[in-house]
Amino acid sequence: MNVVIDNLPAYLEGFGQTLSLLLIAGLGALVVGTIVAAMRISPVPALSSVAAVYTELLRNTPLTLVLFFCAIILPYLGSELPYFWCAIIGLTAYTSPFVAEALRSGINGVPVGQAEAARSLGLGFGQTVSIVIFPQAFRMVIPPLINVLIALTKNTSVAGAFFVAELFGVGRTLANANGNAVIAVLLAVATFYLVITIPLGILAGRLEKRFAVQR
């Protein structure tokens, strides 16, 4: 236990890094994922197939390999980004297809009858989407999106192995330095992760229940 208290500053620093990875990569993934989702549903066939290929490629590549590419191959090819930003790029790219899928499945969760009703009332595409579909889809999308963020939180740990001093990296260093207190060191790391993931999970569950009632 003493090890943990003595190294609290290191832990907090790692926690800060994890949080910034989560926030920046999460935001990036939301933006990229929305663009990919929009491309995916667009009526232009070339756009939707580009989006489909992007999704399939990234979803079927292990995160380790994506981060390996960003942290080790990119510098080798001549990029000079610091490792933190390499990790951000990798996590954003890896998470964005999942965001796109969550958005798509949210829109698909709106019953077709809603769109048919809107269309038969004479609303155009823009009106149907913005007034009828989107407000309903938005609610259904939030819980899965939070789940994607929870997964991202856990995935940031992989960045720790690629030279970013976030929680997992800090934990590994401390565990190596304090061979006699490995259990305490690693449990403390786990606690910090749980501080992020469990509240998010509870939030997702709450929202899901609340929104479920409304239909």
């Binding site: 995935n155 720790g160 590994r172 490995v182 259990i183 690693l186 469990i198």
Partner: peptide
């Protein structure tokens, strides 16, 4: 269950490896 689900697999691997 909540504990296992909320923590990264990588951390669990390291834990099992070291402990």
């Amino acid at each position: 269950l909540e504990f296992f689900r909320g923590m990264p697999v990588l951390l669990m691997m390291l834990f099992i490896l070291l402990v």
